[in-house]
Structure formats: structure tokens, C-alpha cells
Design a protein around this nucleic acid. Structure first.
Lengths: 216, 216, 216, 216
DNA sequence: GATGAATGAGTTTTCATTCAT
DNA sequence: TATGAATGAAAACTCATTCAT
């Protein structure tokens, strides 16, 4: 029983619907609390079918996981291409905007990301953390290196430290946005969508002042 | 009938063990997935006893929650007193150290904090988010204001923005530390305990350069 | 999701057995004390199945309730048709016989009726009492009115009082029969099945002497 | 451990309170649903004490049962004495009034009576039904016999049948009153307290016309 | 391929009863 | 004598998984 073999042969529309419902469910409830009962009820298909397609609940989560990774990879590739010619700070700015757009378009996917970071009992969590780790190495490090080479960043900057710092505050910025977005009205950290653009600019300014090469 | 009345009368050692096991369980699994079965098995007591002490699963969680709030409050009060005479950047540095110490001493408590931020179905979550929100207002804002008044911070700094920024990167720094600490060996973000002191110094330097008043 | 949808698709024999066991259990123990554990044990099926079929304990009781209401309705319709041409006292006599036959055929169903009248915590109890109330209005009142019109009953009789009186003693007669029948051997009120026919005749004679139009 | 030995030694006030709370609880919930937890909470005493006094839940119920039997016995003895000189129909009338007064004064006790008749799993139920049975023999039969001897009742009346009939409608009358009284507002059978006196008179009239010796 | 009936271990919670203090 | 901590069986209900049709 090769996993997902049966699923692959389904018609496209049905596959999409199953994926949507699964993302919604895992995003809303995490892995263990996600209910296959609810999903098949929403989908209007038999519970047995899910097990025909994916073998297990974990098999279904694999689908969601791969989909999410693909979305992130695509988004990063895109922003990397689009900003290839721009300076370091603009690239950071664009990366943050891309993150915001990603959350707006795929809030449930980002929600799964948050759940996976802080919950131990997710399947694939180890692999997932690895992938996230590579983000720093594969995405941010070249940015920093290019920034140093082009003279946009201070030369005495430890690149690894800078990567860690950038990763931390960028991730945290998106977390704050997502939480305030998902908990509509909670107003956590006042990160309301309206002021996002302004906040990003301020963020980038602080980064520039902290890391930038030119004197104030 | 009064919640925890029965619990209060237990002998100290037993109370401590119950608290420990509960912190461990809620920290590892969140609220809904935490299993009272597992807890009483670990404790070697009867299932009914938990309900004698706390009335419900939620009642047990209240104990954990109050304990955590008390720990945090105590830690903050302490660091505030100890650094009253020092300059802004040193106070930030000491705050980060206090956070690191807190995680080292109460890693499971910090874990519950992370879970509560990113999991919707916790009891007391609204109250909890409120408390966290007050951290910015009550703890960081006076720090920033004093920094501006003493001429340690740039005068053109928007205090609320600075508070948000500080809160974000400090919180994120601690998150990164906690995750790498709890997922021992995962080495996420290379935030290994050894290099923590060095990382904190670098962090503070960046903050100083971004926000500080004096010219480089 | 639709209640009882799953149940409806079962094979007839199984459905009947479940209904029988449920009537037995609710009749013997009332609603709250009825045990699904006992039922599934008697039935030799898994506990989960009951919840697949009915969603909840209350859902299972709905089945029993609807079944009982249907039986009563059927029985009343039948006796009304069969006695349309007869005089008032014969109609009362036939109604009592129909009641006795009902108890003989469905003693457990009648037992549930008794429980619902005297136990407050039944689901559907309000609706049920309404249905019972309608019995007086819809069944007995036309009988009395026809009796008065045909000159079989005293003209100075308050119809509502007469209905109340008839309802009370007929109901009580059946209660006494049912209790002595169910508590086989208890001999309560000496209402042994053998002498029932004689008792009914005596009952009707008393009613005739109390309410009848003709002089003794 | 002689049952109730310990209870007997308590101070009178405490004993009364325990009895009151127990009557209330068993009357409201029946035997199995009655909760010793709730009772001790209301009483403000330790749960263990109940078991010291009565040995078991059933032992506690014995107290309630004996109390109820005593109340009924007292009430009947009273009305028997008070009406010794009056005619049959007045004695029946007074008996019904006594029943109504009993329900008004001890609604919970009457409630336990109703529960015991229609619920199989009461302790002492067999003995209880026996006691109820004796009510017909010991209370009503002498009344009927005296009525026949005094020429107030028809001479062709079978005394046992008359006793059964009287017992049935008197009991049913009180049931209807109790149910409408307990289900305040349900209006079952329109037996509202206001019209009780009028209803009793009508009842007695019907009995007189059915059983009485004199011609209309 | 799809279905959905069946399963049984899991969940939280209640409660009468016991017994050491 | 009174206490109340401890117990464990029982309750209703959920759900991933299996499998015959």
C-alpha cells in the first residue's frame, strides 16, 4: 500500500477539496485534536476513504505538510528572484512583506507552523524543524553575505549572529502579526493590519541603524 | 467545594509532586491533550483524588497557571529592584539574563507559556494574554521612558514602537533559547546555552546601535 | 449526523433487538439510571455502536419514546373506530379492555409511561405530558359529549369534571393492573389478571350509577 | 455496629436537620440518584459521619422511610379518631382532605411515595408495598363495613371491590393533586389547588351516587 | 474503489465506601 | 467520635482504525 497512491488517482477537484479541509482542520486543532470525523463530514465522503487514500491520520498530515513546505518554498523563491537587484535592507523589507502576504493568503498554513514549533507531538516535527533551520542558512545567509560584500552592512558583523538576529526578529514580527490576525480583536502587541506597513518600515530602520555600514 | 481547599491541606511534598507532574503534562501536551490518566499514573494516586482536590481538569490547570504567574511576577520584581540604578542597556541585558535563568529553572513553565500563546483552546487564555500584554506596559515602558529621560536613548524614538520592538525581540530571543533547550540536541538556531552570554551581549549592542543616543 | 440515520440502515432483526433492550432498560431504570453499558452487554455489541446510531443516550431514548407514542396512538385509533356505534358505557368498557391489552402486549412501554409521569428528569417529559393531556381532550371529551347528547349521561354533569374523573379512575385502574402485573406475585390491590374482566364490569357499573341518566 | 445507634445519640437539632436534608434529597432524586455528597455539603458535616451513623446509603434511607411511615400512620390515626361519629361519605371526604393536607405539609415525603411505587430499585420496596397494601385492609375496609352496617351503602356491594375502587380513586386523586402541585404550573388535569375543595365534593357525590343506599 | 458498520481503548467526571488520624 | 483523604468502579461519550460488502 504505497501511501497516497490511491489519492493521486482522484480527480483534481476532489483532491483540492480534501487538501483544503485538512489544512483547515489541522490548522484549527493541531494534530491529535484534529478529527477525521469532522473532516469526512465536511467533505461528504466516507471515513474509510481517507484511510484508503492515506493509510492513517498521519498519512493525511503528510499531504498537508508537503503542501505547506511547497508553498513556503515557492514564496521564498519568488521574493528572492524579484529582489535580486536591490540592496540588503530593501530585500529584508520585501521579505517581511512577503511573509505578511503569505499569512494573509494562507493563515491556516501559518497556524500549523506555529503549532508545530511549540507542540512536541506532531508527526514530522523533527524534519520540519530541520527545514525551518535551513531557512536561515539557505535564505538569509546569502542575503547577509551579499550585503557585506556590497558594503551595505558593517564589516565587523558576525554573519551567523546577524542571521540569527534577523531570523529571530523577522519570525517574531510575523508571529505577532499572525496572532493578532487570528485572534481578531485581541489587539496583542497592537499589531493591527492597518499599521503593518509603517511597522515594517520602522523595523527595517532599526535594523539599518544596528547593522548598517553608513554613519548616522 | 471551594476549589483547591482539599489540595491545600495535603502535605507539602505531595502538593509539590502534583504540581510538578501537572506542569510537566500541560507543558508537554497543552490543555486538551493533557491526560489525567497519565498524571495519576505517574503520581501513583487514584484518579478520583485529582477531582477531590481540584474539581475538574480545568481546576487543576488553574493551579498550574497561578503558579506560573506567581513565578514570573516574582522574577520581574526581582530584576527591577536589582537594576534600579543602572543604565537602560544594562537593564535590558539583565532582563534577558533573568529570562534565561527563568527558563533554566522552570523550562516546563515557559513551555506552557509558549503553548498558551499559540493554542486557542486553553482555559484562562484571555486573562493570560492580558497579563502578558501588561508586561509591555508595566515593565518595559518605564524602562524606555527612563532611558529617554536620562539621555541614553535617541529622543526621536517613538516609545510605544520601541516597547513593541523590545518586547518582540526579547520574547523571540527567549523563545529561541527555550526551544533549543527543550528540544535538547535539535540545536535550533544554534542557541546553545554556552554561547548565550555572548549572544545577549551582541543583542544589546544591536539595540544600543539602533536606539542609543550617542554617535558611533 | 442526522439522528438515527445510521440506525435506520441496520437490518431489521438487529433494530428490533436494540429497541427491545432499550425499552426494557429504560422501563426498568428510568432515564438517568439506565446504563448503556448494560444494554450493549445484553446486545453483544460495542459501546461505540450505540453512539454511532443515536449520537447520545438521549437520542436512543427518542427512539423508544417515538415507538411508544406510535403504539399508543395506534391503539387509541383502533378502539375509537371499533366502538363508534356503541353507547357510552360500552365505549368506556372497551377502552379499559384496550388498555389492559396494551399493557399485556407492551408492559415495558407502559412502565416507561409510569416512570415519566413520576420522575422529573426525563428528556421529552414536557412534550410527553402534553401528549397525555391531549388524551383527555381529544379522546374522552368527545365520548362524554356524545354520551350527553344521546341521553346516556345525566344532563347536569359538568363535562370537564366528568372527563377528569374518568381519566383519573381509568388511568388509576390501569396503573393498578400494571403494577400488579409487573411486580408478579406482589398481588398489589389484588388486581390479578384473572379477575380483570369482572373488575372492569364493576367499574363500569359504578360509573353508570354515578353518571348515568336513567334512574336505578 | 447496630444501625443508627450512633445517630440516636446526636443532639436533637442535628438529627432533625439530617432527616430534613435526607427527605429532601431522596424525594427530589430517588434512591440511586440521591447524592450523599450533596447531603453532607448541605449539612456541613463530614461524609464519613453519615457512614458512622447509618453504615450505608441504604441505612440512611431506612431513617427516611421509617419517618415517612410514621407520619402516614399518625395522620391516618388522627383522621380516624376525628371522624368516628360521622357517616361514610363524610369520612371519605375528610380522608381526602387529610391526604391533601399531608401533601401540603410533606410534599417531599409524598414524592418519595410516588417514586417508590413506580421504581423497582428502591430498598425496602417490598416491605413498603406491603404497608401500602395494609392501608386498604386496615383503614378502608372497616369504613366500608361500618357504612354497610349503618345502611349508608348499598347492601349488594362487594366490600373488597368497594375497597379497591375507593383506594384507587382516592390514591389517584391525591396523585393528580401532588403532580400538579409539584410540577407547579404544568396544570396537569387542571387539578389546581384552588378548586380542590370543589373537586373533593364532586368526587364524594359520584361515590355516593355509585355506592350509596338511598335513591336519587 | 468506495462505503460505513463495528470496534474498543481512550477521555473526563461522579460517587459510595473505607479507614487512618 | 468525627474527620476527610483515598479509592476505584462506573458513567457518557469520542475517535482512529479495520474490514466485509
Amino acid at each position: 500500500m504505497i501511501p497516497r497512491e490511491r489519492f493521486r488517482n482522484l480527480e483534481s477537484q476532489k483532491k483540492q477539496k480534501i487538501l483544503d479541509v485538512a489544512v483547515e482542520e489541522f490548522g484549527a486543532h493541531g494534530f491529535k485534536e484534529a478529527s477525521i470525523n469532522r473532516m469526512v463530514h465536511k467533505l461528504g465522503i466516507a471515513k474509510g476513504s481517507i484511510f484508503q487514500y492515506f493509510g492513517s491520520k498521519e498519512g493525511l498530515f503528510h499531504l498537508v505538510f508537503d503542501h505547506a513546505v511547497e508553498l513556503v518554498r515557492h514564496s521564498l523563491r519568488r521574493v528572492k528572484q524579484d529582489t535580486a537587484e536591490q540592496d540588503f535592507f530593501e530585500r529584508i523589507r520585501q521579505s517581511l512583506f512577503a511573509g505578511i502576504r503569505f499569512i494573509d493568503r494562507h493563515p491556516r498554513v501559518f497556524h500549523i507552523y506555529l503549532k508545530m514549533v511549540f507542540q512536541e507531538d506532531f508527526p514530522l516535527r523533527a524534519e520540519f524543524l530541520n527545514q525551518v533551520h535551513l531557512f536561515s542558512a539557505e535564505y538569509l545567509k546569502p542575503l547577509v553575505q551579499a550585503g557585506v560584500e556590497r558594503g551595505e552592512l558593517r564589516t565587523d558583523l558576525d554573519p551567523d549572529m546577524a542571521v540569527f538576529f534577523l531570523d529571530a526578529i523577522m519570525d517574531r514580527f510575523l508571529q505577532a502579526y499572525a496572532v493578532s490576525f487570528l485572534d481578531a480583536g485581541a489587539g496583542l502587541y497592537q499589531a493591527s493590519p492597518e499599521s503593518v506597513s509603517q511597522k515594517i518600515d520602522e523595523f527595517v530602520r532599526l535594523i539599518r541603524e544596528g547593522m548598517g555600514a553608513e554613519r548616522r
